[in-house]
Amino acid sequence: MVSKRLKSKDPDLVYNQKGYAWNKFKSSWQLQLMLVLPLLYIIIFHYGPMYGIQIAWRNYRARDGIWGSAWVGWKNFQEFFAYYKWKTLVKNTLAISFYQLLAGFPIPIILALFLHVSNHKILVKITQNVSYIPHFISTVIMVGILNQVFNPITGFYGHIMKVLRQHKIISSNNYYDILSSEGAFRHLYVWSGIWQAMGWGTILYIAALAAVSPELHEAATIDGASRWKRVLHVDIPTILPTISIMFILRSGHIMSVGYEKVYLMQNKLNINKSEVISTYVYKYGLAKNKLSYGSAIGLMNSAINSVMIILVNFIANKLSDGEAGLF
């Protein structure tokens, strides 16, 4: 970070003297060598295919290949905005994304803190191990379980409704179908996702908490801090860099609500709230082999994701004097 601060052209400064940069580079040859293989991978496999991005501006036909396909300019992008419901798509996508971020991000952190603080080692161990399992349940199964649990007559939810009906708390022919409710869709989607991911999400934070220096804790205890105070002043600050990085990385996915789970949870009644960009692309893009169209929409998503991640990174850097940023 030296070069950023000292931009003066004073020839007496060693940084501005001839050959300084080259010498520095030479002396770091081992580090540069370490980077060779990973960089090679990235250049070949990430940058290599990038020329393919242009199919968003073409009308891709396999026979013509990428270079030979007709150039159509911004037509693919315009087509998206010609879809009469495009505003709903964007609204739904962003709403779900932000909801997921705001509700789902803090929970693994909080849980990790509780698990770390608790003295009941056996209970903690059992709970931890059990809580990882939902992460492995595939989307298809997850939605199946959701449908079964919330079935208004035969499911867990249905049984509760039955009891409520029997005690006249709700009217006796109230079979409110929560799975087809527009209002409930986002909640069901987000909270089932949180349920699935929260246990697994604690792993990273628990590892970071375990790495907190015991000496810091000792020092704090000697100073008379209770466990709770220690959480606030030792544990949390130490894992702040991890939290920050994870948040920045997460915000780079703001437009990426994956299609599969939404598609499985969609039905005629909740479609106004459950149609997101990815399901739309899946249904109208892939189904008709309109790869260019899908690519254009994907690029727009990426652009928005980029803006988000750069913005959040900028804010994180500003708040922490450049420490907490990703780059």
Binding site: N151, P152, Y175, D177, L179, K268, L269
Partner: peptide
């Protein structure tokens, strides 16, 4: 209105 979203298997249960 369950008719619009229920599938056959679930209808069986009803």
């Amino acid at each position: 209105s369950l008719s619009l979203t229920t599938n056959a298997t679930t209808l069986k249960g009803y």
